[in-house]
Amino acid sequence: MNTELTTPTNSNPIQIGKILCVSAIVAVLLGVGLSFVNIKNQQFAIGEQIRQTERKIQQVRAENDVLLAKVTELTSRPALQARVKSGYIAVVNITGDKIARLTPPVQATEVGTLRTAFNEVGRQ
């Protein structure tokens, strides 16, 4: 009696090891692919955030420039002079005794002014 087991020549056995191996490779590839997609999505999201931030910075800069221009206009001499004329602000003369001088000034005149334009009188 022949008790030896022989492999039939036309058999097609399931090779579990190979299937597992291929499945593992596919799973890894799938994981890599999904990770790639996920990272790509994250990149797009970050890109969008960058765009928004850049836009905000640009807007803040533009607003800053607008404010600078407005401040310049409001503090320009013609604007300030117009305000002085309208009485909104006043220019007060600084008297001689309020000025600390490194070099002593010449004697004040009899009317108390240190310097008067010769023609300020003639202009009146």
Partner: peptide
């Protein structure tokens, strides 16, 4: 000359020049 005088007087104040001469009788 009078325009010069007016500008020069105000410029002297702006530049804070110390007067060096006695006052001139007008």
């Amino acid at each position: 000359a009078p325009i010069f005088s007016r500008i020069a007087e105000r410029a002297a104040r702006h530049l804070d020049l110390t007067p060096t001469m006695p006052p001139i009788p007008l």
